[in-house]
Simulated assay, not measured.
Amino acid sequence: MSGINKVILVGHLGKNPDIRYLEGGVSVVSFPLATSETFSKDGRKVEQTEWHNIVMWRGLADVAAKFLQKGKLVYIEGKLRTRSFEDKDGNKKYTTEVVAENFTMLGRKTDFEENTPPDTGEGFNPGEAV
């Protein structure tokens, strides 16, 4: 039996998506996502926030760069990926990222109206799964 690598997150963007273009015009976007949980400790409510590095590729990256903004609430499905790289001093470093396979913008419709282009009858609809 093979393993399962599935991540589901609902959180707020920590900053605007950063889009880059690789060889052949392949687009990739990345941004931090904050998820929070509240629990009780010694009779007090405590909030704990986790930060996740999100990466999106190609068409999904283009849509994310166009519609997502810092602070917006988003539902993300994807998988974990750990990769290595060398820092500027030549030291090998590792990072774990969530490679998103789709996302849905959450919140009120008015949260997205300022970024929504005029309705042309086609294209991306905020709140719709990508």
Rank of each mutant, 00 (worst) to 15 (best):
N5H: 04
V130Y: 10
V98G: 02
G59V: 11
V130G: 12
A65D: 10
R58V: 01
G59P: 13
V130S: 13
D62P: 12
G3S: 12
Q48P: 12
V74E: 03
N5L: 05
K41Y: 09
G90I: 03
M105H: 02
L73K: 05
G11K: 07
F31Y: 03
F85T: 02
N16I: 02
G59S: 13
I19Q: 12
K41E: 11
L22A: 14
I76E: 01
P32T: 05
R58Q: 08
Q48L: 14
S36N: 10
K93L: 08
V26E: 15
G43L: 11
S2N: 14
G24W: 06
K93P: 08
L73W: 07
V74D: 02
V7H: 00
D111E: 06
T110L: 14
K15C: 11
R81I: 10
G14T: 06
E50L: 09
V26D: 13
S36H: 08
F67V: 14
K6P: 00
E101F: 09
K66N: 15
A64E: 08
N91P: 05
S40F: 10
V26M: 15
R44L: 15
S84H: 14
K45C: 11
K15R: 14
P117N: 08
E47F: 13
F124N: 05
R58G: 03
F39L: 11
N91L: 07
F103D: 07
K15W: 11
R81C: 09
E101L: 10
R108Y: 11
Q48V: 15
R81F: 11
A61S: 07
D87W: 02
D111P: 04
K41Q: 11
G14E: 04
Q69R: 14
F85A: 00
P117Y: 07
R20Q: 10
P126K: 06
N53G: 12
K88I: 03
E77Y: 06
F31E: 06
W51Q: 01
T82L: 03
F124Y: 09
R83G: 05
R81Y: 07
E128C: 13
E128N: 12
F67M: 12
T96E: 00
E47A: 12
V46T: 12
D89Q: 09
F67Q: 11
Q48K: 15
E97F: 07
L68G: 06
G14N: 03
M105V: 00
S36A: 07
Y94P: 03
L33N: 02
S40L: 11
E97W: 07
I76A: 03
G90K: 02
D119P: 10
N5I: 04
T110P: 12
G78T: 01
D18A: 05
T95F: 13
V10R: 02
P118M: 08
V10T: 09
S30N: 00
S30R: 00
T104K: 08
M105A: 06
P118S: 13
F67N: 11
W51A: 04
